[in-house]
């Protein structure tokens, strides 16, 4: 089957590893070949966490520069930093709520203007779905549900070979029981937001 390559970038602690795991469980339900690799050595120390997710008949678990069909960004600066993974046909889905790195606070660099960033990215790729995912996660009941908001948006974009039902089943079985309701609500809010942002 066709190969779909998805890069997920986030800041340590934002929950992207759980998001990619849920996608994998959904792929298992869908009977779709799935592989991913993650670089998470210092995830708990506030560094960048990157997952490369590959659906379909490929063997590699990493994605080359320009090789991503979809870039799912949990944080606008990290979305920007990962733009080298995109080509002109890529779909970019990003949360717009910034999490400035510490270097900015101590004057080593400036956080880019998010609105300008949105325009720059939109001009480079086929499709950009950008919205404040953190607000939606809070609306769902927990800022930590940002990962589920973004999963909802990803599924709505119709770019990966798993369905909303499969992802929701994976959320029900693979996320902590106490968070399932919030997670499902977050997923739906993200799904709706992506429809509006398109």
């Amino acid at each position: 089957m066709d190969i779909t390559r998805l890069i997920i970038v986030a800041v340590g602690g934002q929950g992207n590893l759980l998001a990619s795991k849920v996608l994998g469980e959904a792929a298992l339900l869908a009977g779709v070949p799935f592989r991913m690799s993650e670089i998470h050595g210092m995830a708990q120390r506030g560094g960048v966490v990157e997952s490369a997710v590959v659906f379909g008949d490929a063997n590699s678990t990493i994605i080359s520069d320009g090789g991503a069909d979809i870039l799912l960004g949990f944080e606008p600066l990290e979305t920007m930093r990962a733009m080298n993974k995109c080509n002109s046909e890529t779909t970019v889905i990003t949360n717009l709520s910034p999490l400035p790195p510490f270097t900015v606070a101590i004057g080593k660099g400036t956080y880019p203007d998010v609105e300008q960033l949105r325009k720059l990215i939109a001009a480079k790729v086929k499709r950009l779905l950008a919205f404040d995912g953190l607000a939606l996660a809070k609306e769902a009941g927990n800022p930590m549900a940002l990962n589920m908001v973004l999963l909802g948006a990803l599924i709505q974009s119709n770019t990966v070979p798993v369905t909303a039902e499969q992802v929701k089943t994976a959320i029900k079985t693979k996320t902590k029981p106490a968070f399932v309701d919030v997670n499902l609500k977050a997923f739906d809010l993200g799904f709706e937001a992506a429809a509006k942002a398109a």
């Binding site: 800041v11 340590g12 210092m42 708990q44 120390r45 506030g46 560094g47 960048v48 080359s64 520069d65 320009g66 090789g67 600066l77 990290e78 920007m80 930093r81 733009m83 080298n84 993974k85 995109c86 080509n87 002109s88 890529t90 400035p100 790195p101 510490f102 270097t103 900015v104 080593k108 660099g109 400036t110 956080y111 880019p112 203007d113 300008q116 960033l117 720059l120 480079k124 790729v125």
Partner: peptide, 22 residues
């Protein structure tokens, strides 16, 4: 023909995000 990455030259400079002591 390697995948052609988008031109990122006009993106603003990204401040680093090194891991930090908690």
């Amino acid at each position: 023909d390697p995948p052609e990455a988008v031109d990122v030259a006009d993106l603003p400079e990204a401040p680093m995000r090194p891991p930090n002591l908690c």
